[in-house]
Simulated scan of single mutants.
Amino acid sequence: MNNQVVNASEEEIEGMGKDEDASLGDYPIDTVLIRNENRTVHDVLRRIEKGSFVMDPDFQRDFIWPEDKQSKLIESVLMRIPLPVFYLAENSKGHMVVVDGLQRLSTFQRFVTNEFRLKLPDQAELNKKNFQDLSPKLQNRIEDCNLILYVIDAKVPAQALLDIFERVNSGIPLTRQQMRNCLYMGMATQFLRTEAATQLFLQATGGSLKPTTMRDRELINRFCAFQLLGLGDYRGDMDAFLARTLESMNILDIPAFDKLSAAFRTGLKNNVMVFGKHAFRKHVPDQEGRSVFNASLWDVMVTGLSQYPEHLVEARAEKLRAAFFPLLKDHDFVESITLGTNQVTRVKCRFARTKTMFGEVFGDHAG
């Protein structure tokens, strides 16, 4: 077994599987429902204020433009230079999620509310002025600026929506989990954010999952998917599986979230108890350095050990380790957590092998 040992600052994630190319698959090419609308800056800002437009705060703050770039946008509007189109996606609640144009809309919002002054040293008439300092004529020119919006219909399937999202986004590229965080914002995404911030999660994952790319929330999303929808609902498309999970979570009640959180934290505690710093990583007995974090090992181990009470896992920790290490010498199992890990056969293989292992160690004592 090849265990790549790395420093924490250099860690990458193994066993994630590859995102599909933005191909739209077999979705009928003439039924991708996109309509165009023309709205003024004033109208759009009013809708943002009302909450009709979703400006995701979870990653918006990480991608804010510098003020000189924001100033150039305002200057372009004042000079009547046409702006690129904006892309929005309509969600199931009728809200508009900003797919492409988040920074431009954020800039309009910040400037009109006097949150920054223009940095345009070559424009004496505008330099160091905020919105309220401009003449009524120039204020009107900004608020009356016409924006061309392309709106992706809510009926577009999740996979096609993510592919469109990926194709049209012209700003800083977003990860698929960041896209999902926009599209399925609600109780589900709040749950992911809360669990990713716990000390227990950071300890269990060794700080290997980057919050800035929401990789941490993606792994929690994977746990929720296999825990709630189950292996039988997985059809080979991880993106669609995770999206369905968030949709289903958004209609759960508080007791259901409490139960999910308790199971998740039990799974984390049990893995840390048994494997310590090597949890969710390929390793051998008495190994010193940590191997890379393995997302496929995470799927089966955090889900599997969430089913057993902590006192039982503690009592049988040595027996579990003795059963676990041979798995990492099993060719089929190692392949299932290393290569083509999103394939249905590989997913079923790793879950079947670990289920057998847990059965041997714990019998029928699952909760």
Rank of each mutant, 00 (worst) to 15 (best):
N3H: 14
Q4W: 11
V6M: 12
N7F: 07
N7R: 13
S9L: 13
K18F: 08
G25A: 15
Y27A: 11
Y27Q: 07
Y27P: 09
Y27N: 08
L33N: 13
L33I: 09
E37N: 12
E37T: 14
H42A: 10
D43E: 15
D43G: 05
L45K: 03
I48A: 09
G51P: 08
M55W: 01
P57Y: 10
D58R: 15
D58A: 13
D58S: 11
F59V: 10
D62G: 06
D62A: 11
W65I: 05
P66Q: 12
K69I: 12
K69R: 14
S71P: 08
S71Q: 10
V77E: 01
V77L: 02
I81W: 12
P84V: 06
P84R: 12
F86G: 07
Y87I: 04
S92H: 11
K93I: 03
G94N: 10
G94F: 07
V99Y: 01
Q103T: 05
Q103R: 08
R104L: 07
T107C: 07
F108A: 01
Q109V: 00
Q109T: 00
R110F: 00
T113Y: 07
Q123Y: 14
K128C: 03
K128R: 15
K137A: 11
L138Q: 06
I142R: 08
E143D: 09
L149P: 02
V156C: 01
Q159G: 12
A160N: 04
D163V: 11
R167G: 04
R167N: 11
V168T: 10
S170D: 07
I172V: 15
L174S: 04
M179E: 07
T194P: 01
A197K: 15
A197W: 01
F201Q: 05
G206M: 03
G206C: 07
S208G: 04
S208Q: 11
L209G: 03
K210R: 15
R217G: 07
R217C: 13
L219D: 01
R222S: 11
Q227C: 12
G230H: 04
L231M: 01
G232A: 13
Y234L: 06
M238T: 09
L242P: 01
T245R: 03
T245P: 05
L246I: 08
I251M: 09
I254Y: 13
K259P: 02
A262K: 14
R265F: 04
L268H: 04
K269A: 14
V272M: 05
V272D: 02
V274E: 05
F275L: 06
A279K: 03
F280R: 04
F280G: 04
V284K: 15
P285I: 11
D286H: 15
R290S: 13
F293L: 10
N294E: 02
S296F: 06
V302Y: 04
L305R: 00
L305Q: 02
H311K: 14
A315Q: 10
R316Q: 15
E318H: 14
K319W: 01
R321I: 06
A323F: 04
P326N: 06
L328I: 10
L328N: 08
I337P: 02
I337S: 04
T338W: 08
T341Y: 02
V344N: 03
R346L: 10
C349A: 12
R350D: 09
R353N: 00
G359K: 10
E360K: 14
V361A: 10
V361C: 07
G367S: 14
